[in-house]
């Protein structure tokens, strides 16, 4: 196992997921297997090879700075569980 139970709990917390004990054990196994799989790369000699950020050889996809119509307000707020003053209304979040 390349991960510990604490790692799984931390990852779950960062993703705001609440997991049961059984789920934690299951994800511990699955996530470890994924990392072990990727770990195979370490068996190769990667000297001088640049990190690959993308698998497809495409670059410089850009658009001109042109404004297009935005969504109508009704569509914007269509899925909002709560709204007020044409804005999304959510539980209080306070920095202070």
């Amino acid at each position: 196992m390349s991960l510990t139970l604490q790692d799984v709990e931390k990852i779950a917390h960062l993703a705001r997921l609440e997991l049961t004990r059984a789920e934690k054990a299951q994800y511990l196994e699955q996530l470890s297997a994924i990392l072990d799989y990727a770990d195979m790369l370490n068996e190769l000699d990667l000297e001088g090879i640049e990190p690959t950020a993308h698998a497809i050889a495409q670059q410089n996809i850009m658009r001109d700075d042109v404004v297009m119509p935005s969504l109508p307000l009704d569509d914007v707020l269509f899925n909002a569980p709560q709204q007020a003053q044409n804005q999304f209304l959510i539980q209080s979040v306070l920095d202070e």
Partner: peptide, 29 residues
């Protein structure tokens, strides 16, 4: 100060004066 947003074609508007949520699309939402 571009006309449109960084990754979509919504207009960059004055965030103090513009009506809320009038310059948004699926990308910036």
């Amino acid at each position: 100060m571009t006309n449109s947003k960084m990754f979509c074609s919504c207009q960059v508007v004055d965030s103090v004066q513009a009506e809320p949520n009038t310059a948004v699309c699926p990308v910036c939402l």
